[in-house]
Simulated assay, not measured.
Amino acid sequence: MGIGDWVSSWPVYRQLTGADRTGRGAAARSARTERLRPRVADADKVVKSICPYCAVGCGQNVYVRDGKVTQVEGDPDSPISRGRLCPKGSATLQLTTGPNRLDTVLYRRPHGTEWEHLDLDTAMDMIADRVIAARLTGWEWEDDQGRPLRRTMGFASLGGATLDNEENYLFKKLFTALGAIQIENQARI
């Protein structure tokens, strides 16, 4: 490659000597730039979703290839966020596909120092047994003056920011049906 070829490969030289005087078109492109492709170009489909982190409800585009989530970006069609996501929302891909995401049940026995793996059915049975026991021991039919209460003070619910709006709605309905009155969500605190 001669000195002339080398100089003519500079974007500023192409800008000054070519038709693209503003440097926003062909003068600014390089061979590397021409090879670049958007990371969502290979997606099979785009699924509209809502950010799971807080109660704002920012829109997200979830890009899927071969049945797996490959990218999550802000939805420009969303009237709430107009394509923007906060740092937590931008990390949604890590929430769904991150290598540190737990996908098994871990249990630490009372006074235990180590976590052990449980199968899901065993864990669900343990939770159900404890909810029923706490509901029975904390149940209040009526107050001191005989007015009906029909509630339990045996447990409470605190929803988390990684639950989406639908999951938090279902938690609220479940705990209300169980008689709980202390029902809150992390996004409101």
Rank of each mutant, 00 (worst) to 15 (best):
G4I: 04
G4W: 04
D5P: 03
D5V: 02
W6G: 02
W6T: 02
W6N: 02
L16F: 01
G18P: 02
A19K: 01
A19S: 01
D20F: 01
D20I: 01
T22N: 02
G25T: 03
A27C: 01
A28G: 03
A28K: 03
S30Q: 05
R32M: 08
R32Q: 08
R32E: 06
T33D: 08
R35L: 15
R35P: 14
V40T: 15
V40Q: 15
A41F: 09
A41W: 10
V46F: 11
V46M: 14
V46L: 13
V47Q: 04
S49M: 07
I50V: 10
P52G: 03
C54H: 08
A55L: 13
C58V: 06
C58Y: 02
G59S: 02
G59W: 00
N61T: 00
N61Y: 00
V62H: 09
V64I: 12
G67W: 13
G67I: 12
V69H: 10
Q71N: 14
E73V: 03
G74F: 00
D75E: 11
D75Q: 13
P76S: 10
P76I: 11
D77W: 05
P79A: 00
I80R: 04
S81W: 00
G83M: 01
G83L: 01
G83K: 00
R84H: 09
L85F: 08
P87M: 04
K88I: 09
G89V: 07
T92D: 12
T92R: 11
L93R: 13
Q94C: 12
Q94N: 14
Q94M: 11
Q94K: 12
T97W: 09
T97L: 07
T97R: 13
G98D: 08
R101Y: 10
R101M: 12
R101P: 10
L102V: 13
T104S: 14
V105C: 05
R109E: 07
R109C: 04
R109A: 09
P110Y: 05
H111I: 04
H111K: 09
G112L: 02
G112H: 01
T113L: 03
T113C: 04
W115P: 08
W115R: 08
E116A: 03
E116R: 05
H117F: 08
L120P: 09
T122Y: 06
A123G: 05
M124C: 06
M126F: 03
A128H: 05
A128L: 07
D129K: 02
V131E: 09
I132V: 05
A133L: 04
A134V: 04
A134R: 07
A134F: 06
A134I: 06
R135Q: 12
R135F: 10
R135E: 06
L136E: 05
T137I: 11
T137S: 13
W139D: 00
E140V: 15
W141G: 14
E142D: 13
D144F: 08
G146E: 13
G146F: 15
G146S: 14
G146Y: 14
R147A: 15
R147F: 15
P148K: 15
L149H: 14
R150V: 07
T152A: 14
M153I: 10
G154L: 02
F155Y: 06
S157W: 11
L158E: 05
G160T: 11
G160E: 09
T162S: 11
T162Y: 10
L163R: 14
F171T: 07
K172D: 09
K172L: 09
K172Q: 12
F175N: 12
A177C: 10
G179H: 02
G179S: 12
Q182F: 10
I183Q: 06
N185M: 13
A187D: 13
